[in-house]
Amino acid sequence: MGLGAALLIAALLLTTYTKGKIAKIPLNVDATLVSDGKGTAFDPASLTGDRFVVNQNVPLVMQQQISVESPANADVVTLQVGDTLRRSDQQKDKGLLLAMVDTVTLNRKTAEAVSSESNPGGAVQKPRAIGDQNPPTNIALPHEGLTYRFPFETEKKTYQVFDPIAQKAYDANYSGEEDVNGLTAYKFTQNVGFDNDGKLVEPVKYASLYDDDADSQVTARAALWGLPGDPEAPITMTRYYAAQRTFWVDPVSGTIVKESDRGYHYYARDALKPEMTFVDYTVTTNQQSVESQVAAAFDERDRVALWGRILPITFTALGLITLIGGALLGSFSLRAESLLVDPGLDDTGSQFFGGRDDEGQPVPGAEAKTEKLPAQRPTDLPPDRPV
């Protein structure tokens, strides 16, 4: 009975306490995710030409490398994410369009960004020139809301998801469920500078990571921009950014199993009137990366299910069986002990422990009925001796 009670208590603790300790972002996250698609992109080779050239329908590849850095402990995990977007029709650095290394510290249970005095909760790596051998330096960038993960037990609601390019969190609205490789995923959509129809409404001024804002404002001759008038007139344009994203999220573990990104970087003198496209792309997680993320989500589901459902159910069943078995065994042992101590307590009518009178009551041994044996006539006496 003690063992049964212990198993029931263990089942209760696994359901309430242990599951909360298990349902956390793992500390061994290490993934390389690849998305591909097509878009419109600036041709870097045209920087030395007579006019900037923008190519249509070019193949594009986005790669995201996720790893764990310090601090990482029982409560928080720090993710370092390197993002690159490149033209796959050009080799090496010639095709590189975008690059960013983002670091964020997350609460392992809620996936919310956290900050402390010793840790700003986020940073982006300062860009380095090609061939620069100096160690990379970080620029503090406190994050808000969710980044790269959703919380365990994701709900059907709106979440704030941080955009490291815009350096701000935006709404990610729940928009339904879809099957992704056998996993029922929650679908969330996010607009940054676009409305739901994909129209520019509030684009973001691009936040340069260079000290001289070299990539957020560009001054070039009107001829290079392709503008009419004096070809030598200097024209300064500002870089703007807008994006639309769709996340497919495993609701149990919060793992993003698939993602579709539309990003729009352009130069203009008026934010709502694009004049020169730097890159306008739409990419979606490829099949291999989707399979990898779905497998990771199922692993997390199995781990949570083991501690939160399978073991509690098993312990509860074993506890009840053991408790009932202990109770039955205890009742039998009490009965046997009572028979040994006071045989009269046995009401089965058994005659093993003394006799009973005509009314079924036990009688003392001295008064118990005995069987009379018939006397035998001796046969060795002389025949003339009287018996």
Rank of each mutant, 00 (worst) to 15 (best):
S350D: 10
T348C: 07
L345T: 11
T322A: 15
V304T: 11
T322Y: 11
K369H: 05
E359I: 00
F352G: 10
G354K: 14
T322H: 06
Q288F: 02
A296G: 04
W307C: 02
A297P: 04
L311W: 13
R303I: 00
A305Y: 08
L329F: 12
T314G: 14
S333D: 04
L320H: 06
A295C: 06
Q293H: 01
G344M: 01
F332S: 10
V290Y: 05
D342N: 10
A297G: 11
V294Q: 08
G326L: 02
T348F: 08
E359T: 07
Q293E: 13
G330K: 09
P312V: 12
L311M: 08
G308C: 04
I324N: 05
L323H: 13
R309W: 14
S292T: 12
R309N: 11
V294H: 06
A295I: 05
P312L: 15
E291N: 14
R309E: 08
E291M: 04
E367Q: 06
S338Y: 01
T316K: 05
L334C: 09
F353K: 04
Q293L: 09
L311F: 14
S331N: 10
R309S: 04
V304R: 04
L311P: 01
W307S: 03
R356G: 06
A296K: 07
E300G: 12
T314K: 15
L340Y: 02
L318Y: 11
S289I: 00
D302M: 01
V304K: 09
D347W: 13
G355D: 09
V290M: 00
A368G: 02
G326K: 04
P362Q: 11
A366T: 02
G326W: 05
L320C: 15
D347N: 11
F298L: 03
D347R: 15
T370W: 02
G319V: 12
D347T: 11
E291Y: 01
Q361P: 00
R335K: 11
D299R: 08
R303G: 09
L339F: 08
